[in-house]
Nucleic acid binder design. Sequence first.
DNA 1: ACGCTATTCCATGGAACTATGGAATAGCGC
DNA 2: GCGCTATTCCATAGTTCCATGGAATAGCGT
Lengths: 226, 226
Amino acid sequence: MSKAELFESFARTGKALASGKRLELLELLAQGERPVQQLAAVAGLNLTTASAHLQLLRDAGLVVSRRDGTRVLYRLAGPDVAELMTVMFRVAERHRPEVSAAAAGLASQLLPDGVRVIDRAELFERSRRGEVLVLDVRPSVEYAAGHLPGAVSIPSDELAGRLAEIPADAEVAAYCRGRYCVLSYDAVHLLTDQGYTAHLVADGVTEFLADDVALTTDRARTGSTS
Amino acid sequence: MSKAELFESFARTGKALASGKRLELLELLAQGERPVQQLAAVAGLNLTTASAHLQLLRDAGLVVSRRDGTRVLYRLAGPDVAELMTVMFRVAERHRPEVSAAAAGLASQLLPDGVRVIDRAELFERSRRGEVLVLDVRPSVEYAAGHLPGAVSIPSDELAGRLAEIPADAEVAAYCRGRYCVLSYDAVHLLTDQGYTAHLVADGVTEFLADDVALTTDRARTGSTS
DNA sequence: ACGCTATTCCATGGAACTATGGAATAGCGC
DNA sequence: GCGCTATTCCATAGTTCCATGGAATAGCGT
């Protein structure tokens, strides 16, 4: 195999990363294994289109699939794929004004007063001391497939109706799928409006996976058990 | 900016990585700043085609350009771009049989008996002890733009005529542009045929750049000064 | 075997990418 | 300003990619 062919082969991995929809699919798959139909629905894709994208990702070696009865479940080929995504996102954010502006826009413009963005180290430290309630606002399926140890699951679309599960004096730190996931933005907004002290965790599960942060798959506990 | 737009924006970075020729250009740029014409020539591209690729890379934020009189010089936007490349190459090598086979083919089939592939840690340790002569086999321009401290420059196409510069009892460790650069393979072949003990350094300058290994830009010294 | 569900295969139209030749532009030296 | 070099812009043909609807396939339950 010649040098040109080898680089052309590497480029196939690049091609797999060359579509916004495929990146969305990869971010979803970083949350855990899922059937085609769910992926299509969540990503807002036609079923056939989603299937085609997933096969392309599989041919590129970024995801693997297995059959479970009548369904086909896809998952990331490994944590290094999450690492690849995060590195690519970081490069884009550092070197492209439009992207860093959009990211800064998410982090400042959309953030209510009093909400801080806390990084991973601060999260773990304050969580360990019991100073914050760690809130996972992703859909339940994703929480079940893997989440931070000790995190409480309240999907962001159920949060309004489940505020009772959070002690009124609690300080909350919300995380979701990844750095650019908006679920946690919605959550801190709602929490702040309701008088809670809420913070946004900068990273999400995609980054945790990329950096080998330990996740657990135990059953969801509601806020009241904490 | 919506989530879809943001991911579409990240995908532009992916698109930039979706062509073998562009990856070759990036690897060349990881060796140092270069004018368009040289890049076109070395990559085997038409001038206009090369210019188009470079502009696309610039729009994606992976490279930057500056004017120097009548020339335009391109360089990587930062070391994180080299990191992105190495992460992508590693993912491809891990998860795609064709690629790992090709890489293994380079490392075993093409390697003469007695030649070992040595990793970075071993290289630095044995170099520090003066046990190996570190040989940079890239073209002189690339050596001049940045190389391992203490490395001797003999471009692989000049090596046959410059063997006298290498002491006959020297043990040589050759490196070049990156993990998949073939210059060092040619070099260890030639050296082994000539009775030298030669080893291949697994990584090249692309990886050194990605991992913040210190490089120097001092003038080339020939083997005889070592 | 039959019906049912989930997914993949196939064909198609439209959009985007690649390579290239020729024209246009920027900057240097005289 | 003029010629010269290096690069970019423009137009074009060929190729590949994206989304989609309809047909075909795999597997489960009866």
